[in-house]
Amino acid sequence: MNKTKEKITVTKGRSYWTDSMRQLRRRRLAMCSLAVIVLYLVIVLFIYVAQWTSFDVTFLDWGQKVGEGYEAPSKNAIFGTDFLGRSVFRKTLYGAKISITVAFWASVISLAIGVPLGAAAGYFRGFIDDIVVWLYTTLSSIPYILLILAFALVLRGKTLNLEWLGLGRVELSGIATVYLAIGLTSWVGICRLIRGEVMKHKERDYILAAQSYGCSSSRIIFRHLIPNVFHLIIISFSLRFVGFIQAEVILSFLGLGEKNSPSWGAMIDAARLDLPKGYWWEMTAATVAIFLISLALNIFGDALRDSLDPKLKVQ
């Protein structure tokens, strides 16, 4: 390096990301929502860590009897107890674990299917596009809930042969059934979105420029196109998360969810018959828990959309 090179002070650029994040931080409501979301995540992580390390935390043992059956909220059990005398509060916390786990994996599965398919369809068009479009129009023409139910019923109790991946045979637990069913059926929306957006970006000159200096197709898709649609993936992730949580609640409510651990859907199902008798607390706890996370995710997702892609607001 010679002297002139050292003198140069390289100014750091403002990427769209830093700009958007700065804008996002200014929105107070969004930040409150983020705090709520983080709180839920911390609870879930805490439960996982406690389970893995076999760390004995009495207040996490949801199966423990803490009082008589149907005890109203009190100091002893702040959300009351269920018919077996178990703490509704602890059940609600465990419900968060199930919901968030399901929603997380369902999102990962739907993104893993939808994003590459959408990008490939939008970029290559032609034959590949025809297949992808056929696939998702077929899938989306079946009523959503019926489709999830069908998938859940088929996958239930099945063992998955993953020997070719070196993972051996994996028995699908109730929770895995749920997120597989949701994930496998809900990639259509993101796929359609990415396909459209990739088609739009493909027409821009910077893609032509990349082709003109010999960029390979995979490099164009992964280095040029995906970064330009990535904000959409994040926005759709945050907005779809709500839907996935609710789908899990519905499946559990219908008895297709996880059996060995409490979930919000199962709680609502159980409390449904108790409600007329005046035992309102279990229903309320589960509903409020769902309401809070849904509201927070919706507000945060909207704010994220506004700051990442102001043009989307109009649509």
Binding site: S15, R204, Y206, A209, H224
Partner: peptide, 9 residues
């Protein structure tokens, strides 16, 4: 449109 908006110069 000829420069990728997500890349640095």
């Amino acid at each position: 449109s000829s420069l990728n908006p997500r890349m640095t110069v």
